[in-house]
Design a protein around this nucleic acid. Structure first.
Lengths: 232, 232
DNA sequence: GATTGACTCGTACGGCGTACGATTCAATCG
DNA sequence: CGATTGAATCGTACGCCGTACGAGTCAATC
């Protein structure tokens, strides 16, 4: 699959004498594989977050030595890339061509997208640092098809895709970073208290903290879609 | 300012004998300060990105020992928090009450927001990992005031603020992560090539790569605002 | 039986964040 | 004036990290 092609093979060993390396264990029964590495990485990210994943711990978890991972993977960054992309795979039903409800389809796709990421909150933190992966591009393309079939003008299509993507990403990232820890929530709450001493009107903003996130996401999405579509 | 309150002060030194620590230099002429630390951190982040900032290098740059930083700051995370918040401070003109152009004002605020972050691209990568800082809350509140004065219903205000925030964050983060490196761009391009072998319709999506980002941002923002406001 | 190539991993290196306690120095007080 | 204090600085050391390097293992092939 993504097997390593080793570079320079040279440098014969110096004949200094007896080997210093201790005897190795027999090969373990379940072989290492890229799939298992990535799946385990996702597990660990779910449990411990981005900071909790180290190559050594990951190797421990799959039952190998740390350096064995590097046969299957170039470096730690690639582990992140693969974990992120694996989590973003779209498993939705194929588009039903006869359906006329383009808006419903788009909403469903975007809500599924958001749900996938919220199921793995680290993905929201990771996404801004990584290039767009295969599965993201697939989803963008699918979204484009839906919008196009729904009659969005070709000239507007690009902007429409980006507007929706931007909204979903922003909403998801904001939500995920609020969820991340109660400490943060408490800290933000406290900052708001302090702020409200100076601005009485902050009362409104305080609402931001105990929000119905799902409802707000859906309502905001409606706003964007209203903007995109001719008034129905 | 944020001076450290040391914990247990105890533990008299053991009288083992002569000190092992070498003689210290005379105090440097320009004293360390939180402001200087944060400003230098921003410089370094601008130049080297998130990975390029280490406490040791930061200390070198401000001309102190690494551990001296910890008098002014709790830990590295706090350096990130302070750098991020310092970059997000709103220096816009105060609201002109007599202006009726609420939409123009909102657009200006949001474009300024985006510009501030793109001036320091690391901020887009950092934001999802951090709690909302003081200056972000200030901006949100200002945005809320503008929308409210423009007649957005109180019931919709919360959702409206979040919709706009989400859009701006998503757009900025996407843009910044595309900018980050030409390698990424090349890699994404390549993935698109590969993808287009399977889906001819990817031609549309390919457009995503050479985009007029500023124009798209503005246009998408218009979509969102169209959704928010009664058709004018 | 020798060779090869896919795969595993022990060791080591340089760098990281930061705990700990020693040091310096200006201000204060007897 | 000397002694005391507390704010500020920083050298050392510890335990982690990612990963380069090269040696070891084993099944398939000749």
């Amino acid at each position: 699959m993504a097997a390593k092609r080793s570079g320079a093979q040279g440098k014969r060993s110096q004949r200094i004498g007896v080997s210093l390396q201790s005897v190795q264990e027999p090969r373990s029964e379940t072989p290492l594989s890229l799939e298992r590495i990535v799946a385990t990485a996702v597990e660990m990210l779910d449990a411990q977050g981005v900071e909790g994943l180290t190559m050594r711990k990951l190797a421990d978890r799959v039952g190998s030595g740390a350096m064995s991972l590097y046969w299957h993977v170039d470096n730690k960054e690639q582990v992140f890339d693969l974990a992120l992309d694996s989590v973003l795979e779209y498993r939705g039903s194929p588009q039903t061509v006869e359906s006329q409800d383009w808006r419903g389809e788009a909403v469903h796709m975007l809500e599924d997208w958001r749900a996938s990421m919220l199921r793995h909150p680290w993905s929201a933190a990771l996404l801004p640092r990584r290039a767009l992966g295969q599965n993201i591009l697939n989803r963008l393309e699918l979204l484009g098809k839906t919008l196009s079939r729904a009659g969005v003008a070709d000239a507007d299509l690009n902007v429409a895709i980006w507007s929706l993507w931007n909204y979903v990403m922003g909403a998801t990232i904001t939500r995920a970073s609020f969820d991340r820890s109660d400490d943060d929530r408490a800290a933000a709450q406290q900052r708001l208290e302090h702020l409200s001493e100076r601005y009485p009107t902050i009362e409104r903003t305080r609402l931001l903290l105990d929000n119905d996130w799902d409802g707000a996401f859906r309502k905001g999405l409606d706003f964007v879609l209203d903007g995109l579509s001719p008034r129905q």
